[in-house]
Structures are given as C-alpha cells and as structure tokens.
Nucleic acid binder design. Structure first.
Lengths: 255, 255
DNA sequence: AAGAGGTTTCCGTAATATGGAAAAACAAAC
DNA sequence: GTTTGTTTTTCCATATTACGGAAACCTCTT
C-alpha cells in the first residue's frame, strides 16, 4: 500500500478506492467491510461507499453467503486491455514457441513489478514432466533467473529503494540467494554476462536460464527457458545460452 | 460506458475514474486529456486530476513524446489477482491439456462479458497449422461456439437487455449469424444439445466446438476445441463432442 | 515572432465525501 | 423462541475536497 504523496492535482477518494482494490488483490481470502476499514484506516461508511460503487460495476464481487468481498471480473477485463503487456506477448510469442520447440522445455515471458516478477506468457513443454506456471503468477524477483536478469539492469537508486538494508530477503529454497550482499554481487555478474541462471533457487528440482528484453534503453521484460533439474542441466543451459541471447537481441530490436 | 445509477452510497469521483479507465481500455490508441474530456463530458481539470492520480500509481502511463495516455501495468497486475478467473484457469488447465492432446488441436477457455467472450486460457496445438488466440482477446459472443454456448444459458431477460431489437449484429464472416431471430433460434438448439459449433463464423478457415462450464446454477465459462476447417471437419467435431461434454460435466462438478 | 492546440496549474466555492451513530440483518448460543 | 454479539447498511450534518473556468505554460508549425 504505497500511497503517493507530494503532488497536488490528485483525488483522495480515488486513491482510497485504489488502496482498497490493491488490498483485496493481495488478500487470498474474501474480506469484510470491518476488516478493510481497520486495515486501511477508513471509516466503515467510507469503505461501504467505495465498495458499493465498485461492486455495482463488477470490479468487486460480494459472496452472498458470507457477505464478504473479492475482486471482480471487470478488473481482469481491464487488465487484458493493457497495451504494453499485450504488445510484449504478441511480439515474443513466436520466439517463445521457437525456443520451447528447440529445447523441448517450457518458455516464459515475465516483467518486473516492484520486487516481484509477474509471468505474462508461457509456452509449455510437451513433455509429461515439465515446469508449469500460470500467467499472472508473481514470485520474488531475486529467486528466479527472469527476476535476476531484470534486477541486474535497473539503476542503483532504484535497486536501493526496492531492497532496503533492513529487510531480509525471502528464501524459496535453500539455494535461494539469502543476503543483499550476495544478491548485489550476483547481479553484477549477471549484468556482465547478459543472462542469469536459477539453479533450484525458485523451486527444488527446477532450473532456469533467463535473458533480458530491452526497450527504451532499459530492460522491459525477460524471457526464459525452464525445466526439471534432472533433465535441464547446467550443461543444457550453457548450450541454450547463445540462442537465448540471440533471440533476446532480435526481440529487443522491435522495441 | 454504462454508468450505474439509482443507488445512493456511491462515490461520483470513483465512478468517473472507472469511466476513464474503461474509455482507455477500448481505445487502441493513446489518448489525450482534451479528447477524454470531450468524450466523457468532464472538465479538463477533472480529467487531469483523475489521470494524475492514476498515473502516479501506475494505472495509466503517459507517453513523454506525445504527452498522451494509455493503461498502465498496474491494471494488469490487479487483473491477474482476480480469484475467480485464476480459479477457472487452474481447474480447467489439466482438462484443456488433455483435450488438446487427444484432439491435437487448440483448446480454449473463455467467459462471457457483456456481448463479448474473453479468452482466459489456451493450450495450443503442436501442429504448424493451428489456431492461435491470446488470453484476454475479446470477440463478439454470437460469432463463436464459446460465446453461443454461454448465451444459450443466460436468462431471457438478460438476453433481451444485451441484445436490443434495434441494434444490428456484427458479422465477422459471411457465415456469422446476422439476425437476432436467427440467433435466438440457434441458441435454443444449442441449449438443447448442450454444445455449439462455429463453422467459419468467427474466421474463415476456422472451425470450433464449445461446451459450457456450470457453477452456481449458471454457465460461468466455456471450453472449446478449435482448429483449421481443412482438418477439423464437422466429422471430427462430432467425434469430439461426447468427450467435451463429459469433461464439461467433470469441471462443472468442481464449482 | 505569432498563433494554435494541448497539458498543467491555480483558486473560490458548490458539491460531495466523510465518519459517527443508528438501524437492519445475520448467526450463534441458550 | 429470545438474547447477544457482530457485521453490514443507512442516514445526516458538516468538513473536506472535487469541481470547472481561467490563466499559465509548453510544444509545434508557419
């Protein structure tokens, strides 16, 4: 819940509505008005009015049994209309298909949002044993090749403001990078190499190699090949590295 | 831009913000403040304030060159958090995979939104010649098997309010259903059969068969198999029909 | 330099969003 | 069935803020 301050010419009640939607978006459970009111420090009536407005337009749904609320389909529809992600998916799709075919593994596209990556698209391996991840999934950036490659190319200032010294890093597995110092050092190397590996850092049994997609002089997305560690070995990843970097350049030339 | 009226306990400025977001979502091009102001009948300052609020939180992006605006990534992130679509995709995914494998064609999942279907998920055929459609794509419901099967199970009242007598139907191809009378008759048959066909109605050269997914005593989504008309013939569709209906029931039992 | 068109800022005030209190609704316990 | 506790919904006076018109600023074209 990062509320932007400073600038005039903003509308408080809209900020509140967005706070509420964001709160619901990180809540796995349906939520009641009283809890929202407490968590967001808004009056019951205010919450009720906001939620009535959102509900009437399909942005929030109320469960008739529990009387609690969750996000509604309208947000999904709006989300699908976001041109930048649409364009990313459209342009990268043929390349993801190619990569998946050549490697017989799963190919992914993701973007960086805060300290997380969001998966935008995936082309699954036809193998029975394959990695599967749903578009829209969020994972901590520092635990994935995709995320590491994106973090490697953000500015120092941006990195500092995302990763504060006093906040510990999440570890998804015992292989995940666990300290800020280690992460910085690692990202420096990633930046030089132009690709990142994830060796069972995101999930035990899964390896991944990722490369950035550049646009407007920054890394705007990343693509990866990912597979079971038993089959997609370091050897295999090294073999596929150059192909990935080549395709990364081709895609980047389109932005 | 359907603005809900009647109920008290709603907040006008939030309605305005949602109007604006929805307006941008149907606009393929970036849009300026002046045009938004004209189209939505809001003052320039009002538009500016709304858009400044949205921009500061990533819901809208301004192109620095053109100074115009389009939807931002934050909406995509919120859209991905919508539990109902997440759950639909999660539950149907294994079945879509199975269907795609068995038929060697592309399998899709979609929902009804107004008079359109929105594609939620797709498992592509491995064939070189295959149908491809991106999650998030919207198409007129009456031109697709998915849409027809969903329309067949809405209430008469709902149908009447969606499809007014004075508004002509869109035709995507010369095979598309072109009149309301024809559509009603067709949907009646679809409802009895429990499945719908699309024989080059959505796009010349593409056939499709779809079935509904039920939940809470209504059709909440639909799944389909779709392929090139040259290969995915009426014969093939008839062959796959029973499998689709069986799987539709299995999925429906999970809601 | 002037003009046109669009975005951004400013400001007084009318409109509306606010929150507290009460009413209504609901579920659980007795 | 009654009571109690909790949550959602409604109401209302007023403080707050969202509004729109006008001006300033910016960019592009002639």
């Amino acid at each position: 819940m990062e509320k932007q301050t400073g600038k005039k010419e903003r509308i408080k009640s809209i900020d509140k509505a967005l706070d509420l939607l964001e709160f619901l978006s990180v809540n796995e459970q349906e939520t009641g008005i009283t809890e929202i009111s407490k968590k967001l420090h808004m009056g019951l009536s205010t919450v009720h009015r906001i939620i009535t407005t959102l509900k009437s337009r399909g942005y929030v749904i109320q469960n008739q049994q529990t009387t609690k609320y969750r996000l509604g389909i309208k947000l999904f529809a709006l989300g699908c209309a976001v041109q930048s992600t649409k364009r990313l998916v459209e342009i990268t799709k043929p390349y993801l298909r190619q990569l998946s075919q050549v490697t017989n593994e799963t190919a992914n596209l993701a973007i960086l949002e805060g300290k997380e990556v969001i998966y935008l698209d995936t082309i699954e391996s036809p193998e029975i044993l394959r990695t599967e991840i749903m578009a829209g999934t969020r994972t901590p950036a520092h635990c994935t090749a995709l995320g590491k490659v994106l973090l490697a190319f953000i500015s120092d200032g941006e990195f500092e403001s995302l990763y504060k010294n006093d906040e510990p890093l999440t570890s998804l597995t015992s292989n995940s990078i666990a300290s800020l110092e280690e992460l910085k050092k690692h990202l420096k190397k990633v930046k030089e190499q132009g690709y990142a590996l994830d060796r069972e850092e995101y999930k035990i049994g899964i390896n991944c190699i990722g490369v950035p997609i550049f646009g407007r002089n920054e890394a705007i997305a990343a693509i990866s090949i990912t597979g079971p560690a038993s089959r997609f070995t370091l050897d295999k990843m090294e073999k596929v590295k150059d192909e990935l970097i080549t395709i990364s350049k081709k895609i980047s030339n389109q932005f």
